[in-house]
Design a protein around this nucleic acid. Structure first.
Length: 423
DNA sequence: ATCCTCCCCTAC
DNA sequence: TAAGGTAGGGGAGGAT
C-alpha cells in the first residue's frame, strides 16, 4: 500500500473574508472582526494587518488606532460564517472523496501519493475553483503528515511568491521550509513548549527537527514527540473522516454589563440551557450531568472575586430543554451569593452519550414528551430565529445580553436579512 | 493498582 | 468603562 499525502485547505482571514463577501465596496479596504461581546480582535483583513493592527488585542485598547486609520469593525456573526463554511465544505466533498472538517475554516484532505508536480497542479486548480465558486480565498499546503501540511500552509500564506499553495513532499523543499520557520509557528508547539525549548537553545523548526526523539519525549511528553515524528514524515495523526461523538457541550457568555441579581442570572442560564439542549439534539445525544458556573470579572482585581461551580446529576440521561433548565436553575440557586458583580455564567453538559446507545432506566424512563417538545421548539427557532420562543422571562435581557453593536446581517440564514439589490 | 479530578497546554 | 468561546488530551497527584 502506498503512503497517502495530506493537504490542508485553510481560508484566508476567514471571518473578515466572510464579511467582505456581501460587501464588495470593502474589497481592498482594511476591516476587522471582534469576538463575542465585542471583546477582542479575532480576524483581520490583509489591509488591516498591513496597518499594524495586532491580533487578539482587546478592542477598547486599539480603538484609537483603528479609528485613526479608518478600519471597518464588525461584531462576529456566526450564522453567516457557518453557512459560508458549509459552502466550501460541500465543494471540497464534491471534488475529494476523503475530507476532514477540522475547524470552521480548515479541512484536511487525503490525497494519493502523486508526483510533486501533479500535487502542485491539483492544489492550484482547487484554490481557483473555491475562489470562483464561493468567493472565498484559501491557501493550500501539502505534506507527508498533517503537521507538514500545516507547515506548508503557513508558508503558503506567508510567502507571496507561492501563489497560495505550497507542496513540501520533496526533501530539499522541506529542509528549507524548516530552516526559515520559527519554532512557535509549528502546529502543536504553543507558548509553554517554546519556553521549555528555549532553555535548550532550540529556536527554529530546524533546531527542533534535529533534536533526538528521546529528549523531545522527556521535555514535551508524548504530544511533543508526535509533532516531532510528524515533521520527520511519520504520520501519527490520521484523517478523521467521520466526526467523533462529542464529549461535552459548553455554553457560556460574558455579560454586556454587570449582573448582580439572581433573577438576571436565572434568565441568562435558562437561555444557555436552551442553546445547550439544541446542541445535544442536533448531535442526537443525551446527557446525564449538568454543571453550572458563575464568574466575577477577573480583570478587576479590586472587585471581590467569586467563581463557583456546581455539578448536578440528572435522574435519567436525556436532552429535554425543560429538564436541563430545571437542573441549571437548581444549580444557580445553590451557588448564587448576594453582593458580587457577576461578569459571566456558563453551562456544561457532561457524560454525553449517543441516544442510540442509551438504556431506559427502570425507575425513571426518559420523558419523551418533554423531549419532543424541545425538538419542536428547536425547529421553530431554526425557522424564526433564536429568540422566537423560550422558557421563562426575558425581562432582564438588557442587563445580561452581550454587546454586539457592530454586527452585520445574516445574509444567508435569515429571510429578514436577505441582501437587497437596488434596481 | 487503578480511577478520578484538577490543572496545564494547545488550537481555532 | 471596556479584556471571547468551545473543545480535547495529557500528566500529576490525591482518592479509593
Amino acid at each position: 500500500m502506498s503512503r497517502s499525502i495530506f493537504a490542508l485547505v485553510d481560508c484566508n482571514n476567514f471571518y473578515a473574508s466572510c464579511e467582505r463577501l456581501f460587501k464588495p465596496w470593502l474589497i481592498g479596504k482594511p476591516l476587522v472582526v471582534l469576538s463575542n461581546n465585542d471583546g477582542c480582535l479575532i480576524s483581520r483583513s490583509d489591509e488591516a494587518k498591513a496597518l499594524g493592527i495586532p491580533m487578539g488585542a482587546p478592542y477598547f485598547k486599539i480603538k484609537p488606532l483603528i479609528e485613526a486609520s479608518g478600519v471597518r469593525v464588525f461584531s462576529s456573526n456566526y450564522p453567516l460564517y457557518g453557512n459560508i463554511s458549509e459552502r466550501v465544505q460541500d465543494l471540497l466533498e464534491e471534488i475529494c472523496p476523503r475530507v476532514e472538517a477540522y475547524s470552521i475554516d480548515e479541512w484536511f484532505l487525503s490525497l494519493p501519493d502523486f508526483p510533486e508536480t501533479a500535487l502542485e497542479t491539483f492544489a492550484r486548480d482547487l484554490r481557483v475553483k473555491i475562489l470562483t465558486s464561493t468567493g472565498m480565498p484559501v491557501s493550500i499546503g501539502i505534506g507527508e503528515s498533517k503537521t507538514l501540511a500545516k507547515l506548508a500552509n503557513y508558508l503558503a500564506k506567508k510567502t507571496s511568491e507561492t501563489d497560495g499553495t505550497l507542496c513540501l513532499t520533496t526533501c530539499n523543499k522541506k529542509q528549507s521550509a524548516l530552516e526559515k520557520t520559527d519554532l512557535k509557528y509549528l502546529w502543536g508547539i504553543g507558548s509553554g513548549s517554546v519556553q521549555k525549548l528555549e532553555k535548550l537553545e532550540v529556536r527554529t523548526a530546524q533546531n527542533f527537527y534535529n533534536l533526538p526523539p528521546a529528549l523531545v519525549r522527556k521535555v514535551l511528553g508524548v504530544t511533543g514527540l508526535r509533532t516531532h515524528q510528524e515533521l520527520h514524515g511519520l504520520p501519527c495523526l490520521q484523517l478523521e473522516d467521520y466526526p467523533e461523538d462529542r464529549k461535552s457541550v459548553l455554553v457560556s457568555r460574558s455579560f454586556g454589563s454587570v449582573v448582580t441579581k439572581r433573577e438576571e442570572l436565572d434568565e441568562a442560564v435558562s437561555v444557555f440551557s436552551k442553546l445547550a439542549a439544541q446542541k445535544l439534539h442536533r448531535g442526537k445525544m443525551v446527557c446525564s450531568t449538568v454543571s453550572v458556573f458563575l464568574r466575577t470579572n477577573r480583570h478587576k482585581p479590586g472587585d471581590q472575586q467569586y467563581r463557583p461551580n456546581i455539578v448536578i446529576s440528572l435522574p435519567t440521561a436525556n436532552r429535554s430543554t425543560g429538564e436541563i433548565t430545571k437542573a441549571a436553575l437548581a444549580g444557580i440557586k445553590e451557588i448564587f451569593k448576594e453582593g458580587y458583580h457577576y461578569k459571566k455564567a456558563g453551562l456544561f453538559l457532561l457524560d454525553l452519550q449517543n441516544e442510540k446507545l442509551v438504556q431506559n432506566s427502570l425507575f425513571s424512563p426518559r420523558d419523551t414528551k418533554s423531549e419532543n417538545l424541545s425538538c419542536a421548539l428547536d425547529l421553530i427557532d431554526r425557522d424564526f430565529g433564536n429568540a422566537a420562543i423560550h422558557y421563562g422571562t426575558r425581562d432582564h435581557y438588557a442587563c445580561w445580553k452581550m454587546n454586539q453593536n457592530l454586527r452585520s446581517q445574516s445574509y444567508t440564514t435569515q429571510w429578514s436579512d436577505l441582501l437587497q439589490v437596488k434596481g
